[in-house]
Design a protein around this nucleic acid. Structure first.
Ligand code: NAD
Ligand code: NAD
Lengths: 270, 270
DNA sequence: TACCGCTTGTGAACGCATGCACAAAGTCGC
DNA sequence: GCGACTTTGTGCATGCGTTCACAAGCGGTA
């Protein structure tokens, strides 16, 4: 029980268990984690990693558009972040900029891909080929970004063997063999909530070390497995909170209706 | 330009613009934000809000299962967080526990729902009824949680009028009238990336103040609009990063293969 | 009623992340 | 070749979020 932890990536969610950002810190763990590992894999804050992925996409767009170099300011605006933050994020992976000029787009793409481990293709398996699973299996954006979907699993006998997005659905009992055979490194769970934990356990048993979970449940996994969750209900509820707070504030500030209480369309009146 | 900002919720992403957590802090803003608003809507960290949504779901499950009360420890384990963190999160919304006993499940549910603004139903519109849009429209989990999907939009003439999940698809030109009429408070964008910004602008014009964006683009919105994004490519890439880092560490630590290097299945060996 | 054990709620400390501001470093023009 | 200008990379301060640890408070019990 003590070895288990909640999955990360909510908002600002820093897990109690070791993170990339903590590998240099003293860890109250007993096995593995030798100090010698410090030099390699510099500690990159998890938040920065997520942003690097965003920069990468923006950079790809720029490259397609023919840009040769970008300044931190341009890239920051395009990625929707502060330019200082962007430079700091990039500094985690090294110094690839030229002062007075900016960054070479191609170089930056290559370096970010290297850090994110995208040089090696990460094979993805989707479990639960229902509404969401179909959408994921049909989505062309993954293979294009280095994440080929190489296996689909379900329990529904009517689905087994049916090709979805060009790939036949397999039975979940075949997870061990197929995942090993196709070197699946990321498992995506899109089953109903009650089945999620079982499916997760099977994937882990099969050696899958990373899980992306769409089911609204807290998965229990061993320490060496990385879980991220996408929880739409939570997203909507956070938005709902902001609506409520805004309404409260507006009501407290003055008697004006919640919408359009004097603020010009996003521009701060100075 | 200065009034625009990147959307939040990456990992540990704290926005540059005012957040719930900042309303008590001195803000270098010029309009609105009157000090009088301080008493109401206590400053709840955004990260805590996201977790409250998780607690709510766990609590609902407990209630269905007949539990009358829970201790912070039980709830924390079920939600996958530290019990101290859980208590602090709950303390943001008030003191509804009984020392020596725990929390009454029903009371906690009610209070969290109140804070998250779930007492008022939040009407949702989905734009872009493709693979993902279909899945969202058919998903039964939203209405059940206080988020009725009341409108679907697309541009594809073949889709207009076709019922999806029991609701006919409307043309995006009707966004203004329909959103107003059905009091849509949350817009979900599931269009191809190039269309996302335009769709977003239309929603904002129609008075929608909250947006959940699935398209892998950085949306530019005025200050009073709240955007959250769900970016699967980023999720996968963060997972990929962890695979890479782990492989690096293992290689540096000893010559052992990345998988199963001595650790017992999640249990820390003491 | 008084005591005891249990759990909450929170003050305080710590650590991570953000943003600022500037020195270092390179380019471009002359 | 030199100076001025531009942009990077980063030390530092600040603020937010997490965690610890414990006093306060409540129910049960004698
Ligand atoms: N559809 C959405 O838009 C949406 C949105 C948010 C969250 N989710 C979550 O995603 C998950 C999937 O949603 P959905 O709408 O696709 O559901 P769905 O019912 O359409 O599909 C679920 C699929 O999982 C399969 N399945 C059931 N048990 C299984 C098992 N033990 N092993 C393997 N496969 C199994 C079913 O056969 C079915 O094909 C759910 O947990 C849901 O809460 C979905
Ligand atoms: N399908 C997935 O699993 C998945 C995963 C991650 C991200 N996404 C993202 O979600 C978005 C939708 O993906 P999808 O697979 O459903 O795509 P899709 O092509 O299946 O569907 C897109 C839909 O949007 C409609 N559309 C196009 N332009 C529009 C406009 N201007 N206004 C309104 N509607 C418009 C199209 O008619 C189509 O019905 C994309 O941005 C994609 O990158 C999808």
């Amino acid at each position: 029980m003590a070895a288990q932890r909640g999955q990360r990536n909510g908002v600002g969610d820093t897990p109690p268990a070791p993170t990339a950002a903590e590998i240099t810190a003293p860890i109250p763990r007993v096995v593995a984690e030798v100090p010698a590992a410090r030099e390699r894999a510099r500690a990159i804050p998890e938040a920065a990693v997520a942003r690097l992925a965003v920069y990468l996409r923006v950079l790809s767009g720029m490259q397609d558009q023919g840009s040769g170099t970008v300044s931190s300011e341009e890239l920051a605006v395009a990625a929707g972040v502060n330019s200082a933050k962007l430079r700091k994020d990039l500094s985690y992976i090294g110094s690839y900029g030229t002062r007075g000029v900016g960054y070479e787009v191609a170089v930056l793409i290559e370096e970010i891909e290297r850090i994110l481990g995208l040089t090696r293709k990460q094979s993805v398996a989707v479990v639960g080929i229902g509404n969401l699973g179909h959408a994921l299996a049909n989505y062309g954006g993954f293979p294009g970004r280095g994440f080929p979907v190489t296996a689909l699993f379900d329990v529904d006998p009517d689905l087994i063997g049916v090709p979805v997005g060009g790939l036949p659905v397999e039975h979940i009992d075949d997870i061990p063999t197929i995942c090993a055979e196709r070197e699946v490194s990321i498992g995506v769970i899109a089953t109903p909530p009650p089945a999620a934990q079982t499916v997760c356990d099977r994937l882990v048993e099969a050696g899958v070390q990373c899980i992306l979970n769409f089911a609204p449940v807290v998965l229990q996994v061993p320490d060496h497995v990385e879980v991220r969750k996408v929880d739409l209900a939570v997203e909507l509820q956070v938005l709902s909170f902001h609506v409520a707070r805004r309404a409260d504030n507006a009501a407290a500030t003055n008697g004006v209706a919640p919408e359009f209480n004097g603020k010009v369309n996003g521009m701060v009146v100075t």
